[in-house]
Design a protein around this nucleic acid. Structure first.
Length: 411
DNA sequence: TCTGGGGTCCTAGGACCC
DNA sequence: TCTGGGGTCCTAGGACCC
């Protein structure tokens, strides 16, 4: 039989910290210092009562023995790739699902045990594994026994597992859907799969029908290797404190987000054909705007001009905003970009405006990317992003942060 | 959990066309 | 023109995940 294996790193971020620094082993380790709230914690920290989202000042006060460290996503990502590669020794198809999880197809239970043993030996941390006939059941299984678990759910043992599983615990069923299902008298996963297919079709949506099949052991979701598709979007968002009504500050925040998203696009060799941005109000409402770009872009200037032109419509005077965000959508690889056949020197009219100019601009930004790698992030930023930099919650002006030439105000 | 950042996918409704 | 039915494409916004 072919099984779906789901692998989940236990307290992944905290475990990576402990693996890299053995002095932390056995201690209550918490990551998220930079955010001011706990992001992940070791089982020792959990045992003390520390939970996700707990403020750092509170942890310090209540549990002085806890060690609170900054999250280091670079290291976590290195460990994630080691994890994927170890799994690939044993499985042809591995889906890199997230920084601490993956799916794989394996032929037998022994193989899954070998994966677990290699992972733990080589990465110096524990993993919880779940084995089942479908992805959703494999997820149920890996969650069943944590940490350091290994749970196999055979198709004919399904009911026993699903009987004790609250509907809201199922992967893909969030608070809204859970509430809706409870009102229809579906409390557990077993209640759910015992409804007829017709009933599901008549009363629920596509997502729920898929989950219904998966939970009954019929695969709907496939393990797909992660390299086969591009990301659909690149986003950069940031919440700031204090919130503001000031359009200039909001533009500056957007500017910083555009810079960040474009840097990522260049790093991934992608071009955006659409841009979307939003202002998020204190009430968590979004004022948004989406626009098609005149040509595929990965540099900030034109995008910022477009935002500048439209911000007046999006921004509502007097409304207090707490965050802004930018997404580059409709991404295409650099390689696909049509080289203009009619560039300088040609007798034919030029293609989309500024083909050559853009080429140069792109070169400039590639140089910036190299300098940033050398001198560190944010050593060079656009003038328009200056206002967004904060220090101890205050917006610092221009000169204080000015260590390298800036690229000029966006006109 | 009074709420950070980066993603994906689905759906309802409007615009436009025949 | 006061008016049916159907298709497609796009957008806003919701829901969910890690």
């Amino acid at each position: 039989m072919t099984w779906i294996l789901h692998i989940d790193g236990d307290s992944f971020f905290a475990s990576v910290e402990m693996s890299l620094n053995p002095a932390l082993k056995g201690r209550a380790v918490v990551t998220g210092h930079e955010r001011g709230i706990a992001t992940a914690m070791s089982k020792e920290a959990k045992a003390l009562g520390i939970h996700r989202g707990m403020p750092v000042y509170q942890i310090k006060k209540l549990y002085p023995q806890a060690i609170i460290v900054r999250s280091d996503y670079h290291n976590y990502s290195i460990f994630a790739h080691r994890m994927y590669n170890i799994v690939r020794r044993y499985a042809g198809k591995v889906e890199e699902y997230s920084i601490d999880e993956c799916f794989a197809r394996v032929e037998d239970i022994e193989t899954a045990w070998k994966v677990k043993s290699d992972l733990q030996k080589e990465l110096g941390m524990t993993f919880s594994l779940g084995l089942g006939p479908t992805k959703v059941i494999a997820k149920v299984a890996s969650k069943w026994n944590k940490p350091d678990g290994f749970t196999v759910i055979e198709p004919d043992k399904l009911e026993g597992f699903l009987r004790d599983m609250q509907i809201g615990q199922i992967w893909g069923i969030g608070p809204q859907t859970a509430h809706h299902l409870q009102r229809l008298n579906i409390k557990t996963a077993l209640d759910f799969i015992q409804r007829s297919e017709d009933w599901i079709r008549g009363n629920l949506g596509k997502r729920e029908l898929e989950l219904w099949h998966e939970l009954r052991g019929t695969p709907v979701y496939h393990v797909h290797t992660s390299h086969d598709d591009l990301p659909g979007s690149i986003q950069h968002t940031r919440t700031f404190n204090p919130p503001t009504t000031d359009k200039k500050i909001l533009f500056s925040e957007l500017s910083k987000n555009v810079e960040g998203a474009c840097a990522k696009a260049r790093a991934d060799k992608l071009l955006a054909r659409k841009v979307y941005y939003f202002l998020k109000t204190q009430e968590f409402r979004y004022h948004r705007f989406e626009m098609a770009l005149p040509e595929p872009l990965q540099t900030p200037n034109e995008i910022l001009n477009l935002i500048k032109e439209t911000l007046g419509e999006v921004h509502k005077a007097g409304v207090v905003y707490r965050a802004t965000g930018v997404a580059l959508n409709d991404l295409i690889p650099e390689a696909y970009e049509q080289k203009s056949l009619f560039q300088e020197g040609s007798a034919c009219p030029p293609g989309p405006a500024g083909g050559v100019k853009n080429e140069k601009k792109r070169e400039i930004f590639k140089t910036i990317d190299r300098l940033e790698r050398k001198y560190g992030a944010h050593s060079i930023i656009l003038g328009s992003s200056m206002r967004a930099l904060t220090k101890k919650g205050e917006r610092v002006g221009f000169h204080k942060r000015f260590n390298l030439p800036f690229m000029g105000e966006v006109v």
